[in-house]
Computed example of a mutant assay.
Amino acid sequence: MPTIHVKTTKSYPVIIEAGALGRIAEFLLPLHPPCRVVLLSDDTVFPLYGTVLAAALEKAGYRPFCLMLPAGEAGKNWTVLGGLLEQLAEAGITRGDLLLVLGGGSACDVGGLAAALYHRGMDVVYFATTLLAGVDAAIGGKTAVDLPAGKNLAGVIRQPNAVIIDPNCLGTLSRAALADGMAEAIKTGVLAGGELWSLVSAAQPDYPAILTGCAAYKAQVVAQEENDAGGRLFLNLGHTIGHAVERHSHYALSHGQAVAIGLAAMARAGAAQGWCTAAGPIEAALQQCGLPLHYCCRPEDLLPYLWSDKKRLGEELTAVLPYAIGDCRLQKMTKPELLQLLQAGL
């Protein structure tokens, strides 16, 4: 499969290769000479792949040091991040060593932030094991932990040295985890339109093709605008409402489920207000993956979480509006306008 190059300030490859897990040295050695490697994973993923990856690292001359995170959002907070940094320091890890994150989006988020902070920056590579991480979270350099006020409110944008994706890892994912990844893939398809929309809305998903298509699209967007201040804002489609729903549910909803609800709600609001022509196809694509389309709460209860979103500047928040498949637009909205959107879409 082709290697995708993310041409940001610090360019790096996204390597999508079946069997990459056992061939890790083939991809790491051109990027970083043998050293101590902090193999950071979570308590769900490490039992599946950690031992195999550590053995492959040792065989190539690397010296793995394994650290574990709680899985999911439970691992994305100041306490976990602080503990991780302390462990790096106690182990004598240096800036010349490498942090290798093995896992999904949450592990990449907190691992990437730890790499950015430790010794003011050490090299990091993401080995993405979930569909959600492969199509979106591992690419683009966003790192974060959650705060009580909202999701992903503390972090930096710092690009990794590489992203490695082994499509064979998708074989151990549950149907729910695959659906989570498809929520992000469908979001990307709505943005891109054309062939990518056909891929993500197909009744039988071709996951390797979806990985490649979504990764290529995101690489193109991030290369044009790296810092989430212009064109990259489009990638937040579905996330403004989605993050609010996720936080309001106390993370009982997964990220993919919340994004699906956010995307569907935005499309329904657009249909009700007369500017979206794609609500039906968007909801159908999400629904065939088994994703939720609705969330029961008062719009007024969700509004504070929307208003704490990172995309708010002063008294306006930039929302991404899906007018049609392949036609999304940025719109600055006031707090009353956001409430109207929620009332029309939830």
Rank of each mutant, 00 (worst) to 15 (best):
G155I: 08
D123I: 04
I164P: 11
I157K: 06
P160N: 00
I164C: 14
V124D: 01
T130F: 08
N168S: 14
A144D: 01
A149F: 03
L153Q: 12
Q159V: 03
L132Q: 10
T129S: 08
G140M: 11
I164K: 09
D136M: 15
A144K: 03
I139V: 08
G171I: 06
I157F: 10
G155T: 01
N168A: 11
L131W: 03
I165P: 03
A137N: 10
I139W: 07
P148R: 14
G134P: 14
G141Q: 06
F127Q: 01
Y126C: 15
P160E: 07
D123M: 10
V163W: 07
A144C: 01
N168I: 01
V163E: 05
V156C: 03
R158N: 06
T143K: 08
V135Y: 10
A154M: 15
R158M: 08
P148V: 12
P160S: 07
G141F: 02
A138P: 09
V145H: 06
C169T: 07
C169Y: 02
L153M: 15
A144L: 03
V124C: 15
L131F: 05
T129L: 12
K142R: 07
A149Q: 10
T129K: 04
A154H: 05
A162T: 06
F127E: 02
P167I: 01
I157R: 11
G134D: 02
L153C: 15
L131S: 01
L131N: 02
I157H: 06
A162G: 05
F127V: 02
I157N: 07
L147N: 04
C169A: 11
V156L: 15
T130V: 03
D136Q: 10
G141A: 01
T129E: 04
I165M: 06
A154L: 15
